[in-house]
Amino acid sequence: MGRLSLKNVTERKGLLYFRRKIAGKDTYLRLPDLDDPDFHAEYRRLSQQTAPKEGPAPGSMAALVAAYRGNPEFAALEMSTRINQMRYLDLIVTEIGERGVKGLRPAHIYTMRDRMAETPGKANAWLSVMRALLAYGTRIDMRADNPASGIKRLELGEHEPWPADLLRVALEEATPMTRAAIVTGLCSGQRVSDCIRMQYGWIDGGIMEFAQKKTGKDVAIPMHPFWLEELKKLPRRSTTLLYERSGAPFKTTGAIQARLRDLMAMSAVREVHADLVAREVITADATFSFHGLRKNSCCYLLELGLSDTEVGSILGMSSEMVRHYGKRARALMIARGAAERVTGGKIVPLARKVVS
């Protein structure tokens, strides 16, 4: 790894730690790997924090956060999940750390959630952390109920499927690894968190088999020839299909999402986006994410004639979600079928009634 020159960072057995004095003793806090996209954010957060001179007031939200961070279940979470939760835990301590846990009411939580209404994704992530935090508070008898349990998440926009013209220019302009990621998402219909996990060892007879990270569902995906040909173009530098420039597997989804944002900002892609807006195919504020490729895949399989159950089994989603994702594809399929009958029929004028 080479000699580190970052202040307060030390390496032990190949792992990185942030060293801090607490009560006169050195304490070592685990850091992400140096090439992890979250490393600098976590290092900056720890560098800016100062060890508290006094502990939080008993019964306060700050005390609950401290207890939550110290429980074994939090320590067992994946590094990326802990880092993400800690951002929102810090926000909670900053905003209402001095408030008593027992005095927190749903109205307070609604107010804090609605302050982030312009960024609903952030608001929903904050609410999830708050809900988990207060659930832990009920477990350790800091209060009897969870005031966040009945509060709904804010509505998010739909993950739109990528239009054909946008997909074409994106594949043309993308770097080889970004292109492979797009093709993997398009042909597998899986979430980005699963696409970065896929390994060559999981392929058996042209079928990609694994358990989804989010749901635990077992999926078996027939690998399209286009997908297989795309993978052949990349040097096999890792056990995973997709990998960082260093050859190491992607550890978080952030790197892929950042690559897509950069791709969507390219002039050639923006030109196609503007043309689609002018033709009223999409709205001016339409955005396209990796998850939209999951909807592309669902629509494609439905157009092939697969049933909702078959599509759901391949993609690892419920039949209800397949129907939701496939609404647009089904409308087009019905229109195509009707078009043959409508355009093939004869227009016969209505006979006039003779009025005597």
Rank of each mutant, 00 (worst) to 15 (best):
A148M: 07
L154S: 07
V169P: 12
P147S: 03
L156P: 04
K152T: 11
R143E: 05
M142P: 03
R131W: 00
I140F: 01
A125H: 04
M130S: 08
R153E: 08
A135T: 15
P147A: 10
P147T: 02
D145T: 13
A148C: 08
M130V: 14
N124S: 02
L133G: 07
P163D: 12
D165W: 02
G157Q: 10
M142L: 07
A164R: 10
Y136M: 04
G150R: 13
D141L: 10
I151F: 01
R131V: 07
H159P: 10
M130Q: 08
A132L: 14
I151A: 06
E155S: 07
W162F: 15
L127N: 01
D165R: 13
W126F: 15
L154A: 10
W162E: 08
N146W: 06
A144F: 06
A125G: 00
I151W: 00
T138A: 03
E160G: 02
L133V: 04
A148I: 01
S128E: 00
P163S: 08
R143P: 05
P161R: 13
R153W: 03
D141H: 15
W162D: 14
L156I: 14
E160D: 15
S149R: 09
G157E: 14
D145R: 11
A144T: 11
G150C: 04
R168Y: 08
A164M: 05
H159F: 14
E155H: 13
G157Y: 08
I151D: 03
S128T: 14
D141S: 12
A148L: 13
A123H: 01
I140T: 02
D145P: 11
L154N: 01
R168P: 06
L133H: 02
L134K: 06
L133K: 09
R153S: 12
